[in-house]
Design a binder for these strands. Structure first.
Lengths: 342, 342
DNA sequence: TTGTATGCGTTATCAG
DNA sequence: CTGATAACGCATACAA
């Protein structure tokens, strides 16, 4: 592979001059510039970005740590990040943690050794031992948290209005005449689960509806728990008229339960869920959903990060961007035909 | 950030010694080794992988060029690649081309400037101007093609048995009593489209069934064309009893058409498609599908690539791995209740 | 305006 | 077995 030296000698100039035409900054004679450019073309020269990084102490590389690219929530987010990164001259290297903190810690080490300029982070854990991120941030590595905000850490973040999203959806169900609305959560102690449940509580309270503990059920964000809980709910003595799932995994289980019990939505039960999946929309039932702007989370997070790289945050003034969700009303949340019971 | 020099002076040894304990290779006295390790811990030293890359002329980085991570076919493939890369001490940087060759060319330049050790490539185009990949390969950059094989290029590849996958599915439909089986392809001149159509032709020929040109329709792999073509097929004078879609995008359109016409599968029409999407399986209709081992494509491609990096291919002996598909039979391909017509 | 020299943080070669 | 030193390819003062 030709180096800058080869270009220089072929063009009959010094390496300094070649470097100058490469960076385009310095004023260099038209004559020399064309000679250098010819040499570059003839040699098929490509500047060695590794050497450049070493010298300039910047890699133009962003690290991105997510849970699992196979989880359909992430591809759009990654794409948003990648597009924003590319637009600013950065590249992205992505890592999956499968929600395991020890893996997150490994990746942190690796990324810091590779001297990434900044980090996009979807934390594996909201609380617990976050010392690796704390230390990295303290040592000056720009970090932007996506989707979830770890507790007790001063970091910029881009999240979604989980509470408001659920609230608007529950309000919609109430408006359609539902009073016995069940919610399946992601389980206690989880960031997303807590915030989403709050939206339910808010909406119910605002409508003056009583809370039935039997209708507020803890799942674990996975299909299996949605299936089991939905079956319990639907076969109980006093079943709900609507079920809200706190993420799409749970919703899959609920949909499955409805079919396995020989029921149909919206005829027998109204359904709604957090997360929108365009791919399933042509199938039945057509489920009402709360869509989050995944692409924007990635894109805006990346733009924020790059801004921080260029001008580091002073003191503890951090920015927290919270993006709105959108309610996608579909057939599954049709209203009750008769007046609601007690 | 501390450097190897800082570690050396703190441990009272030379940089050479520190380098030796880092690489673990050279024999170094137990005494010195512990002193160095202590210094490393105390300074929280992390070797600068950029500098190491410059010196060793290897980045331990693999480039991966795909069409679009948002296309549900890719996340599993990327995940497979990432896992295999991580297991071998490499990291992956991913790029989307949106099927645009000019973008592919840009990414090639970038990746070569960054001195990636190898490339995982899902080509944007099967034929046409592939000079950038040809040149890169000729200059010694290890490249493994995934999913599609570009024409006239000597490159290792990992693909799927597209023809066999479709054939087995059509055979299944025939076995269920279907004779008028329609196929919606990805359009003429495309690699995947051609191979998949061949499976249909093979199965029909083997069963001695006549080919009806009206049932072999060119789509473009997207939902809209699936919708339009399916509507035509279903409302024609002599409609098919089964429709096979050559990818999942087309299938989405077909499913939509069936519902919009007030029909139901399998009651009124049998359905089957290439590509399996686990997420849609709980919804109705439950569509029979040909599943490809996406994760394995990525994983095996990566392992092959790393092998090539370590021991480059001699001459033109290239390896082409072709992975089998799996037929996932679901409700939508139920048999005909009455004997099939002519 | 252009050329020269130094250093970025490592690894590797070679004396000692 | 350990230490000094020369690259790796580039950017950047600084000198000419």
């Amino acid at each position: 592979m030709p180096t800058i030296k080869d270009v220089a000698s072929r063009a009959g100039v010094s390496v300094g001059t070649v470097s100058n035409v490469l960076s385009g900054l310095a004023t260099v004679t038209e004559d020399l510039r064309t000679r250098v450019e010819e040499a570059i073309a003839e040699l098929d020269y490509r500047p060695n970005l590794i050497a450049r990084s070493l010298k300039k102490r910047q890699t133009n590389t962003l690290g991105m740590i997510i849970s699992d690219i196979v989880n359909p929530f992430f591809p759009e987010m990654v794409r948003g990040a990648e597009d924003a990164a590319a637009a600013a001259g950065y590249i992205l290297t992505t890592f999956n943690t499968d929600y395991r903190v020890e893996r997150e810690r490994q990746v942190f080490e690796l990324l810091r050794s590779r001297r990434v300029d900044g980090l996009l982070l979807v934390v594996a854990l909201i609380r617990g031992d976050l010392s690796h991120v704390q230390r990295a941030a303290a040592e000056g590595l720009p970090i932007v948290c996506l989707d979830r905000r770890p507790e007790g850490l001063e970091l910029d973040s881009v999240t979604v209005d989980n509470t408001g999203g659920v609230r608007s959806c529950i309000e919609h169900l109430i408006e359609r005449g539902h009073r016995r609305i069940a919610i399946i959560t992601g389980g206690p102690g989880k960031y997303l689960a807590k915030n989403r449940l709050q939206g339910y509580l808010d909406a119910m309270a605002a409508a003056g509806l009583p809370l039935d503990p039997a209708l507020i059920r803890d799942g674990d964000f996975r299909r299996e728990s949605g299936l089991a809980i939905a079956k319990e709910l639907l076969t109980s003595a006093n079943p709900p008229t609507a079920i809200f799932s706190c993420n799409y995994g749970l919703n899959l289980g609920v949909v499955q339960a409805v079919e396995e019990l020989g029921l149909e939505s919206p005829r027998d039960i109204a359904l709604a869920t957090f997360d929108r999946l365009k791919l399933t929309e042509v199938f039945r039932p057509h489920v009402t959903s709360v869509e989050q702007p995944s692409y924007e989370i990635g894109a805006q997070g990346t733009r924020l990060l790059i801004e921080r790289i260029k001008t580091p945050a002073e003191g503890s003034e951090r920015v927290h961007i919270q993006l709105p969700t959108a309610l996608r009303i579909a057939e599954s949340s049709a209203g009750r035909l008769v007046a609601a019971g007690s």
